[in-house]
Design a protein around this nucleic acid. Sequence first.
DNA 1: AATGAATGAGTGTTCATTCAT
DNA 2: TATGAATGAACACTCATTCAT
Lengths: 239, 239, 239, 239
Amino acid sequence: MESSGHVNSQVTDTRLVEERRGQVLRAAVKLFSERGYYTTTIQQIAKEAGVSIGLIYQYFGDKDDVLFLSLKLVLESYEKEIPLRLEGIEHPVERLCMAVWAYCMIVDRLRDATVLAYRSTKSLRADRRALIKDDEIRTNRMLEGCLRACIAGGYMREVNEHMLVYQYVMFCHAWALKNWAFEKKMSVSKYVDEGIKLLVEPFLTAKGKTALASVRLGTGDFKHEKRPARRVSKARAKV
Amino acid sequence: MESSGHVNSQVTDTRLVEERRGQVLRAAVKLFSERGYYTTTIQQIAKEAGVSIGLIYQYFGDKDDVLFLSLKLVLESYEKEIPLRLEGIEHPVERLCMAVWAYCMIVDRLRDATVLAYRSTKSLRADRRALIKDDEIRTNRMLEGCLRACIAGGYMREVNEHMLVYQYVMFCHAWALKNWAFEKKMSVSKYVDEGIKLLVEPFLTAKGKTALASVRLGTGDFKHEKRPARRVSKARAKV
Amino acid sequence: MESSGHVNSQVTDTRLVEERRGQVLRAAVKLFSERGYYTTTIQQIAKEAGVSIGLIYQYFGDKDDVLFLSLKLVLESYEKEIPLRLEGIEHPVERLCMAVWAYCMIVDRLRDATVLAYRSTKSLRADRRALIKDDEIRTNRMLEGCLRACIAGGYMREVNEHMLVYQYVMFCHAWALKNWAFEKKMSVSKYVDEGIKLLVEPFLTAKGKTALASVRLGTGDFKHEKRPARRVSKARAKV
Amino acid sequence: MESSGHVNSQVTDTRLVEERRGQVLRAAVKLFSERGYYTTTIQQIAKEAGVSIGLIYQYFGDKDDVLFLSLKLVLESYEKEIPLRLEGIEHPVERLCMAVWAYCMIVDRLRDATVLAYRSTKSLRADRRALIKDDEIRTNRMLEGCLRACIAGGYMREVNEHMLVYQYVMFCHAWALKNWAFEKKMSVSKYVDEGIKLLVEPFLTAKGKTALASVRLGTGDFKHEKRPARRVSKARAKV
DNA sequence: AATGAATGAGTGTTCATTCAT
DNA sequence: TATGAATGAACACTCATTCAT
């Protein structure tokens, strides 16, 4: 069953397709993010990418394709990078916090692109819009997994998981969407810290709170992107 | 100092300007919401509004003006309608809940328009984008006032008010932005109920919780838009 | 049952539509005839017609529409003008000869346009190609009627009417299609004269030949477009 | 004096040029015939021919060259194949009929290509258009030779040979040009039979008619392409 | 005040042609 | 000799905006 999300290329060499598409998409994400989809022209993308107009049409069917793959690129960043950050972390509370933290970090890096997703997803053809949503849903499921593990492990009381996950998502996206309201008041790290106080802590059990305390003590408030948090040792966590 | 948000009209009769602009803006909000700003043409707006193309240019300077006033119309709906719903309600907890409830109701009614605001605010000229933000900020301040009253009244513990308000805002907007994720699972009322459990209840003091209980008992879970919640009487609230 | 040949116009004023379309089509027929459909640009047509590019798109849906109506204009010239020339002529043989003569005259006047029809009909969308064929068929039927009257009146022996009509049609079109082969050797009148000797005369009965003789004596060999042939009187014709 | 009809090739090996050009031209004639010159791309021709785009430009100067040689291929089919069919036939009447029959057969086989010639000859550069006409003229001269032989042999009365030849040509081409009008009513063979009744028979002398009768009796109405007509023997013909 | 026909700059897209490999 | 990725001029078409009525 062929998904309608497939984008055809005139060129067959897979290596080259990968490379050229990347080159064009980097330019497209940049320009779409800065100026929006409709006010960015193919000419501008070609110039920014350092290729000819014709080349773009060898690797993408039309402008809609470029938008679709641009958005996919952004959404897949979330989907791929969050799990990377969770690798090796085992304590459910730490995993949940790290997931939120990682999500916010990526949103911070792709701030304009995140806004772009909100601005332009509706500009896609319906079938593709659905595929972009699927990407989002997959990322959300990851968060939901973290949340459930907390509840299952007795670190968090029963809550409406679906709703709370969406609060996490909106919280992360808000860093980009409402950045004008936050950027002068706090750093991303502070933002995440405060978010966890509002959206995680209140639902933790006593056991969960202890765990969270370790996380925070051990990590210096999630502050350093480059030196990610040392893990809460299993032993400690279980105490 | 002339505010840059001013939109000029060729026509001087204030009454007429009011009327004609309303006529055009209703059409514009409808079409922009359905199809987006760039894919809606002035020709389509004229047709939908039942006026000529030329007339639009008598009452608006350009297409950007139409978008600006359309978004203002939407943002002002929030700003105006929420206070209306709060009239006569005095208990801080009830006021906070009602504010969230009212916000969600308006978002529900203007679902596409709310999405439009996210899609198209960036399409505005920078000075106008700022004015739209001011509208949003004013609405947010209203929520902040409700929140502060709860804390001041001892119904809620100290929290990062600014952050929590934004969580409320994102929660309300999410009903529109992520409607595809909610509409099959619950009604607006249920959505608000669950939201209050996650974003209000956890921060309430014992006193606050008692108040909330009255609210919910008295209102049938905020379920009926047409017959809005009977107010928690001062007497009761104080118990 | 709406025919698919309908061409929409943004403009509703019938008078104006008639006028503007005529203006554009005259330019289009000229340019298409000279340079062909694909090598004529909308810009060139606009310039030639003395209108803007945008105007063309107010009165025609797309370039295909312009071609369709151009060809229709040409085909309808045949259909309308031949009957005009036959008005008042009653003798079957004279009517047949006059029809061929008239057809050739129109082809002569619309020489390039006739060639255009052969070059470009296939460039039309299939449904419209069929409508153009219908126009041709209607013209052919007129000739067939003339031919049948000759046979019915005993002026011509039995022949395969359908085939002979197509010979007449090809003969008339050939004046345009193979003009390079004829133009230096003879005038249209001479061409028609010779054609009648080859395609009409051989099939005439004795009675028919007598009639033809009168026609030719009376008309000076169909030579003068401006002073069309005096009619063979009924009396004479019957002799 | 270099004829302007020459098409340059980057490749010198004559054998190879012959072969590669044939390969490309077969594809080109097919595609041009089906879709027309302007709507067929070099890319499509390359794909259809199973060669690379670059290769086409090694053997042809530009797209016009491909069209020119495609049309030449078609026109030369007429010029070469008709004489082949006439080989060994000596009786003038039979030769004339066979020429028309052969011409129609080739047109039938190259139906779309014949239409292509009418559509696209004008798309050629003027000098080349003239060369294509020369090909047509040469074919016509062949028919004219057959016709003259009939007259010289006393089988046909004096007629305007030039005009009648063009009627023959148009008749043969019409099988392609107006195929939509004939294909449901008759076979090619029937078409030729009827054509001869209209365009040959009427001009035959008594002697000529006798000859024609033999032809027809001897051949089964020209019906079978595979078993071409047995020749009218000289002896018989002279009777 | 209201109309809507007219304008033309600007955009997405195509495709003949080139050229490095 | 053969390839096919790359190029960019050129075209059909759109739509915000103007202006004569």
